[in-house]
Nucleic acid binder design. Structure first.
Lengths: 266, 266
DNA sequence: ATTTTGTGTTTCATAGAATGAAAGAACATT
DNA sequence: AATGTTCTTTCATTCTATGAAACACAAAAT
């Protein structure tokens, strides 16, 4: 029963990184940097940003390219097409995501709101499934979008059980990531989080203006949940009370999903 | 001006693999195997299938897990959520895919058929963009789907410039992948491909029954195209003539996309 | 043309990381 | 409990990953 995710901080700076598999770790950093960059990168850029030598970076890119994880045109590298089948595989085969879809569907139709499943990754959360309610939130499907933990109901609820130490890391990461201003403190973060005793989080105009949201965590055997489900609505079509009335429904859904994390099943 | 993709064969068997970065190559094989499996895998399964020792496999999984490329629940491993942001990054930032969208849109609206962009990956092709015409082909969005090269217009057109040697590899891979029967020969494959002089391929009931398709390749500086665009329709709403009348439009679209592969642009 | 500056690529000796055998823990099954 | 299986850790050895340096190439500057 493990759902761990160590992943030491590190963005541009040096991360004390996991001891093992240096070359693989570095390769993943290059890959991550390619995503972060959002545009084709030259070899020398990548080498500098990732803090490794040109030959090493080149060798990494060549192998990743062999597997389609990286593409090259002329002298510039970018994320390659192999990530698409990988994502498809995740969406279609991940037991939690697969199980979540009908459950979200049910929640959405009962509440008539948009229901989403997030999973934590490092110091962010990722939208991994969504079923729209009556008033969809956006035109594009934001599946796979990286969102902060510190903002928005579905992020905050994942932090309620975090240790002081971890909150500090989260706060630091948020500042480093530019999502919070430099003066952001752990106390300020903690004040946003649900009070003890509350098992849901609420947000209003937090992550996006005009958007209301409630979220509950999906319990797992560790007591450190890494998934949350949320109800979201544009401010025009719902109010705080309407959203909060969906909380019991959310709780039930979370409970059902939680069973999948107990291990026993698969 | 390089768009290479060496990627020595290898599925379950030993591939003479690229000499470099053994650990990284092996890690990518584990990752590929996780996708192929389509269900959570145990450590020992992965080690056996990939032909590596348990400790090595374990170490690889741990690192991949740190980066979210792999998830673990209990004793079983699966593809992790980090692939979603990666795929998103690809779709939103890859210059070719980004440029293709409006072009496919135009083709689709002019022909009223579904227009798709495929890219070759190893001995398969992957759907990387699609714009539906009047009669959409399916309910689900098959983005990232792996499809054979040997079947379907968009696959075959990518093989027209292939060397005899490469065709042999393709044929062998198709047999090994179970998409073709054991007796499948290079000549049989070649007979499916467009005649010399034709720059488009046509297929009918090939990859899927009731589906017609024409495709052209997107030329690149090597003369070994790895992208193709296709028009597709269910048999009920179009016939061969209707599809083929879209070929000029496809050619123009391919020409525009081709410019992006000339390198000079970025 | 010639130099300069900035890249990318290859080579090579060395350090140190990746490796598998073996031993040791956890489990599961009998 | 006892057996068999799978997972995990340790550790000595090997071979791979590494960066310096030399080389190649291109673009810009002189």
């Amino acid at each position: 029963m493990t759902v761990s995710s160590t992943h030491s901080a590190s963005s541009a700076e040096e991360g004390p990184k996991a001891a093992n598999m240096r070359s693989l770790s570095r390769a993943m950093e290059v890959f991550a940097e390619l995503q972060r960059a959002e545009r084709p990168q030259r070899l020398s850029d990548l080498a500098r940003t990732c803090g490794m030598s040109l030959p090493t970076t080149l060798r990494i890119l060549r192998v990743l390219q062999d597997f389609g994880m990286v593409s090259q045109t002329d002298k510039s590298y970018r994320v390659g097409p192999a990530v698409l089948p990988a994502a498809r595989s995740y969406i279609e085969n991940d037991p939690l995501v697969v199980a979540a879809r009908p459950i979200l569907q049910q929640v959405a139709s009962q509440t008539r709101l948009t229901a989403s499943l997030y999973t934590r990754l490092g110091f962010e959360r990722i939208l991994v499934a969504r079923v729209d309610g009556e008033s969809p939130l956006r035109y594009d499907l934001p599946l796979g979008k990286r969102l902060p933990l510190t903002v928005g109901a579905a992020g905050k609820i994942l932090l309620t059980t975090a240790s002081k130490d971890e909150l500090e890391q989260v706060a630091a990461a948020a500042v480093a990531g530019g999502q919070e201003k430099d003066t952001f403190t752990v106390d300020e973060l903690r004040s946003r989080l649900p009070q003890d005793g509350e098992d849901y989080a609420y947000s209003e105009d937090e992550r996006a203006t005009g958007v209301l949201s409630v979220a509950v965590a999906v319990p797992n055997p560790h007591g450190r949940p890494s998934e949350s489900i949320a109800l979201t609505s544009p401010v025009e079509s719902a109010n705080e009370a309407a959203l909060k009335s969906g909380v019991p429904e959310l709780r039930r859904a979370a409970g059902r999903l939680s069973e999948l994390l107990q291990g026993s099943v698969y």
